[in-house]
């Protein structure tokens, strides 16, 4: 009966390694850094879930204590929670660094938003500096 767990665990590990391969393949095939992140982060996270939970099940199937499962669940939950955060930080870094989108990209709403925000801020600072030059007080606090 308990051998069934070990077979399920091994199947999960195989599926996980398949997704690992998928993530590295995406890393190699995709044209720009954003699409690479798209394919690799998701597949690597699901692959880790498969491999790590699979190891827990396999260990119980082999007759080790049940605490393997709780420990592997902790590791899997940690990876599930932190991987999207590091993906988010990386993609933000790529955008802030000015790496251009792939030439086949169709729309970039973020650039439009940033440009509009920049324009509004320029208008505000201009208005503020004009007010500062006209009025006598509070001119020192306006940063241009």
């Amino acid at each position: 009966m308990i051998e069934v767990l070990s077979w399920i665990g091994q199947a999960l590990i195989l599926i996980g390694t398949f997704f690992y391969f998928l993530s590295t393949l995406g890393l190699i095939r995709m044209p720009d850094v954003y699409n690479r992140m798209q394919t690799s982060t998701k597949s690597a996270t699901l692959g880790s879930l498969g491999v790590i939970i699979g190891v827990g099940l396999w260990a119980v199937g082999k007759g080790y204590s049940v605490s393997w499962i709780s420990m592997t669940i902790i590791i899997a939950a940690f990876i599930l929670l932190t991987n999207p955060i590091s993906a988010h930080v990386l993609i933000k870094a790529a955008y802030e660094k000015g790496i251009p989108l792939w030439h086949g990209s169709v729309v970039d709403k973020y650039r439009e938003f940033l440009e509009r925000e920049e324009k509004e801020r320029d208008a505000e600072t201009q208005a503020a500096s004009q007010a500062g030059t006209q009025g006598e007080n509070d001119a020192g606090e306006v940063r241009t």
């Binding site: 590990i13 690479r36 982060t41 190891v55 260990a59 590791i75 991987n83 990386l90 660094k97």
Partner: peptide, 25 residues
């Protein structure tokens, strides 16, 4: 670019965690 390399390193660490868990077993 540097971010490309960093993404690859991130994926490698994830793979390494999987490998370490397998080694534990």
């Amino acid at each position: 670019t540097a971010v490309d390399r960093l993404v690859a390193v991130d994926i490698m660490t994830t793979l390494t965690v999987g490998m370490m868990v397998l080694y534990a077993l």
